[in-house]
Design a binder for these strands. Sequence first.
DNA 1: ATAGGGTTAG
Length: 351
Amino acid sequence: MMGEATKFFDEMVERGILPNEVTYNLLIDGHCREGNTVRAFEFFDEMVKRGLVHDTYTYRPLISGLCSTGRVSEAKTFVDDLHKENYKLNEMCYSALLHGYCKEGRLHDALGACREMIERGIDMDLVCYAVLICGALKQQDTGRLFGLFNEMHNQGLRPDNVIYTSMIDVYGKRGKLDKAFGVWDIMVGEGCLPNVVTYTALVYGLCKAGYMDKAELLCKDMLVGDTLPNHVTYGCFLDHLSKEGSMEKAIQLHNTMLAGLSANTVTYNILIRGFCKMGKFQEASDLLVEMTANDRGLKPDILAYNFLIYGCCVTGELAKAFELRDDMMKRGLKPDRVTYNTLIHGTCLTS
DNA sequence: ATAGGGTTAG
């Protein structure tokens, strides 16, 4: 809600209350989370003009922001420049950079940055290890995975919930359910309790492999374990049902969810995609209306529109597809590459 | 007084 935050900032300045480092760091973090790194760096510069000092609370969001907008090399340059000019960074700043590299599948560069971090006198902590372990898992680099576990162990650090969950997630997505359950057993054996995220990762794996019945049983187990399935957990079921074309069952589950946990943009998108793939544009379109109803307050995003446009294209209703394109622009959503590819594909099919 | 890693959609 950066619009709101900015209003308060303006009000504060107007009333003569001087913003300090905390004020600026919060705004910088917020803008970065919204992907507006340009605005964030404007505040970064403004701090200097006001005589305010940057610290790791300022740097960390900027590094994350650059990484999440696809500019990991700029993030690296930023980090290196700060180091050269003797500004102190900490493990949180570095873990943000490592995360950026790993998300792009650049484990090798992450390990390089890690070495530099250690040379610069900053110790790896559990989060740094978690990020690298997740990277090694996704790259299927077993050698480095074991190396990291060993190193972590030698530093006296034990894997936690998050690390175990990453493993379960990756193995589950790859259909290696035996391995996923193996990790689960180790985790429980270590006295580390699975939470809703852990359960959900396993539920997704089970659904994907076609074991919906087992996934349902796992949800019942959750209740015993004093955790509750959330909208993400239900999203896994919706995803699977939609992919196999069981839209009736999916809607049934969706309606059950509406009674308790509220659906979010992702769960609506899963359903919209499902109907569109089956050529049921009307049902998909009704869901768009449902999600925007006042009491839900959800905003359709580019994905929802792209699915709907796809739905029109496959049924040959090209005029409607272009109407939707206009409609999304009116809502301030910029058509992206997928939007245009879908429209081009639809036009080719029709003419 | 402000931070980082793990779960659902193309």
